[in-house]
Design a protein around this nucleic acid. Structure first.
Lengths: 125, 125
DNA sequence: TTAAACTCCGTATATAGGTACGGAGTCAAT
DNA sequence: ATTGACTCCGTACCTATATACGGAGTTTAA
């Protein structure tokens, strides 16, 4: 059993973040003995690690809450994963289009002879 | 010369957005005759189109302000474009790694026989 | 035993890029 | 002349994800 400070330090996150996740309903408020201090056991650490990993995969906190409430129903979880996958692929495609446009622009800058007329500015104007 | 409402409609943006860009310093407040109404000429429409195009390319409003203040100095503009290009490429690489991870996860869901144990949840736990 | 460190709670602040509101004044069409 | 649409301004609100603050109570270590 550890206080919120120890827990946060162990997970390398902020104390306020733990309380924030509690307010968001991602974790439940743990028992608070006489002192009024929250006391956490390892199941809390594991839940928080789950949250952090899912977040790192690009799931929003609301989505993390959903994942946690699915209690392992594989079809539901897979469906959410596939949905996220589609979004990721769309984002990649968008960024690749953007990459092409900006690369073309900067290339025409390189080819440009007149330093006071910029092809990028011109193509935006 | 048109009022803010006509201008906004022409550009398919919100009146409040025009005022917001003014507050941000992206455009200057135009002359206001007796009525107190802002009156815009075409140079404003062109400036706003510039802003909208640059925004669509992923430049932040602060960056757009910089671009506009460079007054066509091509080297500076090119440098900002290259910087943006690097960021875009990093984002693409990040997303592609993510894509791989989530795809592997959902694939192992498909291969999973037990509907009450989910490989995704397990790998997050 | 006392001082430092920690925790409590509610609320405010931050980012980016807007959107919404409300009361008062103005313009345009009938 | 009136009514509806438009504009003014300042300010509050929105999303998402936290972080910061302040005053009061608690624990811990020297």
């Amino acid at each position: 059993m550890k206080t919120i400070g120890k827990l946060a330090k162990e997970l390398n996150i902020n104390v306020e973040t733990v309380r924030f996740y509690e307010r968001k309903g991602l974790i439940v408020q743990p028992l608070k003995p006489d002192s009024g201090y929250r006391m956490y056991d390892n199941t809390y650490a594991n839940q928080l690690k789950f949250i952090l990993k899912a977040k790192a995969l690009g799931f929003t906190l609301d989505e993390v809450a959903s994942l946690m409430s699915m209690s392992g129903n594989c079809a539901d979880v897979e469906s959410m994963g596939l949905q996220k996958l589609m979004l990721i692929r769309e984002k990649i495609a968008d960024l690749q289009r953007l990459e092409q446009v900006i690369q073309d622009m900067t290339n025409s800058c390189k080819a440009n002879q007149d330093p006071n007329s910029c092809p990028i500015i011109n193509s935006l104007s």
